[in-house]
């Protein structure tokens, strides 16, 4: 649906060039929810603006629904933009228009018949559950309500794509959940492709099918969400996973020589990761029965990635080297990823 090829965007400033986006190529498939995650300043907002040419890339191609927008005429570009809905962190509603008029605006610009506009706006007001507030002004609404209005406005032209630029970053956790559910519902019911820009891991976790991780203007890792986040290659990706799960904390404890992770010579600190086909208790009890390895669990968590539960355990295995090696092999044979974080030393 959207394909970026070698897109580069450089801003010229007094202090020299700022390379906001460097040689990024991504392909967003029809109907999926694609996440772009990165810490602030990574270039994700610029990247998403390249998709509808709010920022014109210096180099590269932007292909939307088979059309190269970089080559499009101004009027063709405007037509394409009308088919790419966009919502923003700060909502950007028209302060002097009612909720109804805000949603109706894109259709009014196209001079559509009044009854057609009315039917469409009322349908969307119903979707966002704000029918009774249609004559209110944006300043009278809460943040979550404003974002829902912005979503309705973005949908009024029946877009093919919805771009969400930090759409939940100004909202509280409860409201964020509601907005995420709404976005997901729109994706499923209206078959609209969604691009989500965020610095919050849980947004990606809740929503996305595919993800691209950005760091200083580059996409450092991309792919389907479960493989990317269960087998992260880049440090940046690991950092993000650490922000979303307790399991990352073990590294801090080791760095601080915390007594919880102090090991005897016959102990090893091991991280296990497994998906829904396994359950932790069964694994642990089997390896301790079968190989005589004692397991004490330090951390445990189950995270839901989109719809896939991913379990993580940080445990201390106690036993002889041979016992532990066999236990680890056994686990690996059963599709559990095993990482030995630290070995005990003979004091």
């Amino acid at each position: 649906m959207i394909r970026l090829e070698h897109v580069t965007k450089t801003f010229k400033t007094k202090d020299g060039d700022v390379h906001a986006v460097k040689d990024v190529s991504i392909h967003i498939k029809k109907g999926e929810i694609y996440g772009i995650i990165g810490f602030s300043g990574a270039g994700k907002s610029t990247l998403v603006r390249c998709m509808n040419l709010l920022e014109r890339p210096n180099e590269g191609k932007v292909i939307f629904d088979g059309e190269d927008l970089m080559e499009a005429s101004p009027s063709a570009l405007r037509k394409a933009r009308a088919k790419i809905g966009m919502i923003f962190q700060h909502f950007n509603l028209m302060p002097a228009m009612t909720i109804y008029d805000n949603i109706a605006l894109p259709l009014k610009l196209e001079k559509r018949p009044k009854d057609e506009i009315d039917a469409k706006v009322m349908e969307l007001l119903d979707l966002i559950d704000l029918v009774e507030r249609k004559d209110s002004y944006p300043s009278q609404l809460s943040g979550g309500q404003k974002q829902r209005v912005a979503i309705a406005r973005a949908l009024v032209n029946d877009p093919k794509v919805l771009l969400c630029d930090e759409a939940t970053s100004a909202l509280d956790p409860q409201t964020t959940q509601n907005i995420l559910r709404l976005i997901r519902r729109i994706n499923e019911e209206r078959k609209i492709t969604v691009v989500v820009i965020t610095h919050e891991m849980f947004v990606v976790k809740e929503l996305c099918d595919e993800v691209a991780v950005m760091e200083s203007g580059r996409v450092v890792e991309q792919g389907e969400i479960v493989p990317v986040f269960t087998h992260p290659v880049q440090e940046m990706t690991k950092d993000f996973i650490a922000t979303a799960s307790n399991a990352g904390k073990v590294d801090e404890l080791i760095a601080k020589h915390h007594p919880l992770v102090a090991l005897k010579h016959n102990q090893q600190l091991v991280r296990l990761q497994y998906d829904s086909s396994n359950t932790a208790e069964a694994m642990i009890s089997r390896i301790s029965r079968k190989w005589g390895v004692d397991c004490s669990i330090i951390f445990g968590s189950v995270e839901i990635w989109r719809d896939t539960p991913i379990g993580q355990l940080v445990t201390i295995f106690t036993g002889t080297d041979e016992q532990i090696v066999r236990a680890i092999e056994d686990l690996k044979e059963n599709n559990v990823q095993v990482e030995v974080i630290k070995r005990g030393h003979i004091e």
């Binding site: 509808n52 923003f88 509603l93 894109p106 032209n157």
Partner: peptide, 13 residues
């Protein structure tokens, strides 16, 4: 706010 102008551009105005 500049964002309002940006949103308008993104609507195809």
């Amino acid at each position: 706010p500049e964002g309002i102008v940006e949103a308008s551009t993104s609507m195809g105005m």
